[in-house]
Amino acid sequence: MATAANDAIESKPATPERVPIGSPVYNRILEAYYDEAEILDELRYNEWIEWLAKDLRYTVPQRLTRLLADHDKSIDRSVMHYDENYGTMCARARRLRGNSAFAEDPPSRTRRLITNVRVQLTETEGEYRVLNYMLLTRSRFEQTRMHVLSGERRDRIRDLGGRFELVEREVIIDQSVLGMPNLAIFL
């Protein structure tokens, strides 16, 4: 009965060329990702905006509970949790830096744990596809129960020579009902 799910897997394009783990390019990219996680965890929004490309597309689709036969429809890209561009991300960051963004004032304490990083070449010179797993923990106020969000980030980054910028990010989250009261944080 798993035909639809199998078809979905088989219809993926042939594996693109991988950038080997441990190669110089891979290591530079991994550093950029560790730095991004630190920047967000430390609320350095101005620096985070610098890492975003002007032609950014940033989305967080919804996940639905569907039967196995419809598993390929479990990612829904209509009404998403985030559907952003560079301009809206700047506006969001500007609000967080202002005096009245109460959803994050006092701020949450977060850790973005980034693992399973796989880098692929793309058809565009200097642009890489970066697939990575994210485990985000979020603690607010005196709550002892952590809010946790896991997911896969499907990114595209551009090599600017001295640094990279984020061109595209789609976060495939694992919850159909989010366990936290908002996404006033960036994934």
């Binding site: 998403m80 949790h81 985030y82 559907d83 506006a91 109460f102 959803a103 009261p181 908002n182 996404l183």
Partner: peptide
């Protein structure tokens, strides 16, 4: 309209993220 609404209301909406942190 959809992108505007996601920006202002619901999960990541800049208005309603403050409401949902108040009610608890």
């Amino acid at each position: 309209m959809l992108r505007n609404t996601i920006f202002m209301l619901g999960t990541s909406g800049l208005v309603e993220q403050d409401d949902s942190d108040t009610w608890p």
